[in-house]
């Protein structure tokens, strides 16, 4: 892996980390009215894949989707603005934290119904295959998704039609508040099911950005070359709660501390320094990201909130909602 790729990975990790922390701060300041689901601790999965993707590839993600949307290059002001319900939000404030979408950046939406987006990602891959565009579809979801019907339906479809889609399970150990192992028949909720669809078992360290990135390149390369889908299970941990209001008290004592020792951002920084990348280069990235997040925060705060005039926009193709309201 070359230096530029490594620095790009590091920048992406830092961007997600700083922006997620800022999102949390904005919640505490009551500037974000709804809930939020942060990716703190899980940054390496989003960054590792996004850096391996082509600009026109598709990302599908869940309500825990700030990281994936940002990693594909969506503007920070659009992300923060959406959380705060401002006009400058990616969807003009009508979606909020759970539905970040930026088609222009290949971020095809954040889905808040568990499992709903897996068949959709397969369909997008199918379209790419039919159109012969070599695009691939990468679909991120949580461990809880592996027990819902749509997961199995999508995997079978993708395998049968050899679709260029990569299903990435971010196994952060908890569905919401219940440990995944307590309600799942197998130890590795995604990887152990791969054989049911004739797929290779791929179980990786989701906190190691290099490992994720290498896996992403292999799977994406295979999909682009017509080799069909992959199912990846990335082991990770969310170091914050399920959502804004969750202090995470259901976790056994010490579990969080153990995982904090495997913090993907810290780990990657230490590795880069160990490889001889200058401190200054890393500090420059960190400062630049801090500055960018600060600027985006101020810009979003300065932007007016969405008004009732947009409520009936974009119901139909003509941009409106036609006959009433």
């Amino acid at each position: 892996m070359d230096r530029a790729t490594r620095l790009a990975l590091y920048r992406s990790l830092v961007e997600i980390r700083v922006l997620e922390k800022r999102a949390y701060d904005l919640f505490l300041q009551n500037l974000v009215k709804g809930t939020s689901h942060l990716s703190l601790g899980q940054e390496a999965v989003a960054a590792g894949f996004a850096v391996a993707m082509r600009k026109d590839d598709y990302t599908f993600c869940t309500y825990r989707g700030h990281a994936h949307t940002l990693a594909r290059g969506a503007p920070m002001v659009g992300v923060l603005g959406e959380l705060m319900g401002r006009k400058c939000g990616l969807m003009g404030g009508k979606g909020g934290s759970m539905h970040l979408t930026s088609v222009e950046h290949g971020a095809m939406g954040s889905y808040a119904i568990v499992g709903a987006h897996l068949p959709v990602a397969a369909g997008a891959a199918w379209s790419a295959q039919v159109r012969g565009t070599d695009q691939v579809s990468v679909c991120f979801f949580g461990d809880g998704t592996t027990n819902i019907g749509a997961f199995h339906e999508a995997l079978n479809l993708a395998a049968v039609w050899k679709l260029p889609v990569i299903f990435v399970c971010e196994n952060n150990q908890y569905m919401e508040y219940t440990p995944i192992r307590e309600v799942t028949a197998v130890a590795n909720p995604a990887a152990d099911r791969a054989c049911a669809y004739g797929l290779e078992k791929i179980l990786i360290d989701g906190n190691d950005a290099d490992v994720v990135h290498r896996t992403a390149r292999e799977c994406i390369g295979k999909a682009r070359d017509g080799g069909g889908p992959s199912l990846v299970e990335a082991l990770t941990y969310r170091t914050s709660g399920h959502s804004r209001a969750d202090p995470g008290k259901y976790r056994p004592v010490g579990e969080l501390d153990d995982w904090l020792k495997k913090d993907p951002v810290v780990l990657y920084r230490v590795r880069l320094v160990g490889m001889g990348i200058e401190e200054n280069a890393l500090r420059d990235i960190e400062r630049a990201v801090e500055r960018a997040v600060d600027e985006a925060t101020e810009a979003a705060k300065a932007c007016p909130p969405s008004g009732v005039e947009v409520i009936e926009k974009d119901v139909w193709a003509d941009g409106g909602s036609s006959w009433r309201n």
């Binding site: 404030g93 969405s306 409520i311 119901v315």
Partner: peptide, 12 residues
């Protein structure tokens, strides 16, 4: 309204 439920415009 005859629209999906909007996030920030809930009270409208």
């Amino acid at each position: 309204w005859d629209t999906p439920f909007p996030y920030t415009l809930e009270n409208d």
